[in-house]
Design a protein around this nucleic acid. Structure first.
Lengths: 211, 211
DNA sequence: ACCTGAACACCGTTCAAGT
DNA sequence: ACCTGAACACCGTTCAAGT
């Protein structure tokens, strides 16, 4: 049997190791479909190899998903940096921009967002590399809040708790939108207005909360 | 073959229809394991019937999950009502209590929470019964916020947006805790303090936000 | 009307065997 | 060292057949 002979051409980067090919192929499949429908066998077939070959590079399917999520956070970090550059030095604008970037990234890459931001039952504690890139993104948010404190726009103290509150509301909005529990706006701009209006409650809350 | 003869005794409610037996059996299995590991075949076996029998009562597995989630919201509503009764008439206390109930229910029933609150990829729009019981729970939150507006503790107007902000932050905290992205407190009481402190940011934000 | 038995097209994971 | 072929133990879904 030559089950994959027709797909062999799909592996267009023979120089890259199979590991990278599987990750990138997985991301391409994830872009067009829910992560629940993504199978290791499909990913292997798209890479032009037998499914058993994947086990030379990943301990199991979850490790492949974790590697994909890790690559996702690398791209997300670029989103965040770009957003911060575009929004200028004003702290409130930087904060809103960071929050909206979280939501926008998820809406533009739903499958991606599911494996990165949660809900797939992936135990992140088992993947230090994934936790590291996620922590790097989280640190950006914490820094902006700290800037707000330095500028006197946000009450001092309890930085971790404030970061958590900001994260929670943005994460919550994101998941509810991804799930269709909150309907998206009639346009991306409308969704942005709606989301930033919700985020604003936490901005005001952080400004007023006594330390 | 008599593959289920040993388990037949597990269906201890022969008077109830198989539909109810499957739902309750599914909930019992869900209590001890992630929803991703829950199979229709297991549920059928626990009920003492062949897996094909389930298709007489549900169009597919998702419809069974939706029915389970619907039953979950019925129980959650009781949690909410009890919480409101315990917290007395003060609006701020009622609000905090409602938020903490959402989180506590999820921590006590993680599998339950996943199929109810989202992340399993279940398309709720296909299940009006599920949407109805969920809307009933959401209305409780909206009513408390409205009480706050009447009492002058929350800025008037934009009730829907304020409800959404409160929902988002509580939902976000819940999902992050369920996912292990935010570590739980050293005790349930510690988690409650941490969660209510985060929720407080939105309380303050809603009080100050101009309508 | 309701359930069984058997089949179909998939899964993730393992492992001896090839090169 | 890396991949294949084949097997194992599962899935969800369908359908003719039984009662």
């Amino acid at each position: 049997m030559k089950p994959y002979s027709a797909e062999t051409k799909a592996a267009e980067t023979p120089s890259a190791s199979l590991r990278e090919t599987l990750i990138e192929g997985g991301l391409r499949l994830l872009a067009k479909g829910a992560p629940g429908d993504l199978s290791l066998r499909q990913v292997a077939a798209a890479a032009g190899v037998t499914h058993a070959a994947a086990y030379r590079h990943f301990e199991d399917k979850n490790e492949l998903l974790a590697a994909m999520a890790q690559e996702g956070f690398r791209r997300f970090y670029d989103y965040q940096m770009e957003a911060l550059e575009r929004s200028g030095p004003a702290v409130a604008a930087r904060f809103r921009s960071l929050g909206w970037t979280y939501v926008r990234f998820a809406l533009e890459n739903p499958g991606f967002a599911r494996i990165m931001f949660g809900g797939t039952g992936l135990d992140r504690r088992r993947y230090p590399g994934l936790m590291a890139v996620q922590a790097r993104s989280a640190r950006l948010l914490q820094q902006v809040i700290q800037e707000g404190q330095t500028a006197g726009l946000i009450a001092p103290g309890k930085l971790k708790q404030k970061t958590r509150a900001a994260w929670a509301i943005v994460h919550g909005m994101t998941m509810l939108l991804l799930d269709g529990q909150i309907p998206p706006g009639s346009s991306l701009a409308a969704t942005e207005r709606s989301v930033t209006a919700v985020i604003e409650h936490v901005v005001v809350g952080m400004a007023a909360t006594a330390s």
